[in-house]
């Protein structure tokens, strides 16, 4: 049995409860034991990281120090913001031991920082540590017929120099996991576009238009649902959808699912374990597509090319 240090972050115990619960189901199927960091604290993704540098690093560093006590190789983080704070802080203090010492001196009670725990997002953990083959082998209920647009958001693969995972502009890891589950990932160009989360409170208009763009493109790609790996992405795209609909003057009706919800489903959990009631946009209509035959786009007749006769070219 593998052990994984788990940092849930504030949303996993609140708005994204369904992420947390399905994550635990999925990990169980992989025989991974999740150990939640005792007495974990805020990651600092609130206003801390723009207000004071020291606090912005002290908060994640405390979590990192606590995580080291659990003696596991890897810490998996559910939320993309938490992941970004944790990973950025780790990169900075690992590169600058003096800074590390300075910050460490503000959290002496927790102990000393050694820097020997790997920080990964859950997506990264699935993709790198579990692997597509294992994922595929656990599938008992293939999601054939379900077309999904994978939305990574801005932080899971960026900044590339710090995350060192997948492509910063057009990542494919989640798409491949979806394919392994039997679902069909659509060609979705807005995978990493901004959803406007940082303006969630201060300027919701912007959030509505940016998130609206993402929904529009997802629909355009033919997806039945959007898949995400971050609670903030989920809440912005799901919770605000009625408002976005109003602004756009049309109904998107595109449910936003967590990667782990679909994994759990594919691994045999009943739909009720996905906690459908937690969603603003109902997930059932999308899930109803499972089992449908996906029509393979007909190969278009060879385009007429304004090609000069070959003999003339050569």
């Amino acid at each position: 049995m593998t052990k994984l240090t788990y940092f849930p972050g504030c949303s996993a115990h609140g708005t994204s409860e369904e992420f947390d619960s399905t994550l635990k189901l999925v990990m169980k199927s992989f025989d991974v034991q999740m150990e939640e960091i005792p007495d974990w604290n805020c990651c600092g993704a609130t206003s801390a990281h723009v207000m004071t540098e020291n606090l912005a690093m002290a908060l994640p560093m405390r979590n990192l120090v606590l995580a080291e006590r659990l003696k596991n190789k890897t810490m998996g983080i559910a939320c993309a913001s938490c992941y970004s704070r944790m990973k950025t802080t780790k990169a900075e203090i690992d590169a600058n031991p003096e800074l590390a010492q300075k910050i460490n001196s503000t959290i002496v009670e927790e102990g000393e920082y050694h820097g020997d725990v790997d920080v990964k997002s859950m997506l990264q953990f699935f993709y790198e540590d579990i692997g597509l083959e294992t994922i595929q082998s656990k599938v008992t209920y293939p999601l054939k017929g379900l077309k999904v647009a994978c939305y990574y958001g801005c932080l899971l693969t960026r900044p590339a120099a710090i995350t060192r995972f997948d492509s910063p502009e057009y990542p494919m890891s989640m798409d491949r996991i979806m394919a392994a589950l039997g679902a069909t990932p659509t060609e979705f160009d807005f995978k990493t576009e901004c959803c406007g989360a940082s303006f969630s409170i201060s300027d919701t208009e912007i959030v509505l238009s940016l998130s609206g763009n993402i929904l529009e493109m997802a629909q355009e790609s033919g997806a039945h649902a959007i898949v995400v790996a971050c609670p903030l992405c989920q809440s912005n795209l799901d919770m605000r959808q009625p408002d976005i609909d109003k602004l756009a003057g049309k109904k998107y009706n595109t449910p936003v699912l967590y990667l782990t919800q679909l994994m759990a489903l594919a691994f045999g959990s009943p739909v009720k374990d996905l906690k459908p009631s937690k969603h603003i946009i109902s997930i059932e209509p999308a899930l109803a597509h499972i089992g449908e035959e996906i029509e393979i786009p007909q190969k278009k007749a060879k385009p007429k090319k304004a090609v000069a006769a070959e003999s003339e070219v050569n």
Partner: peptide, 17 residues
């Protein structure tokens, strides 16, 4: 003029100008 499309730019995806 001596190019593969006879001097007219075309979209590689569908051959349209």
């Amino acid at each position: 003029a001596n190019g593969p499309t006879g001097g007219v730019p075309v979209r590689p995806s569908d051959g349209n100008v």
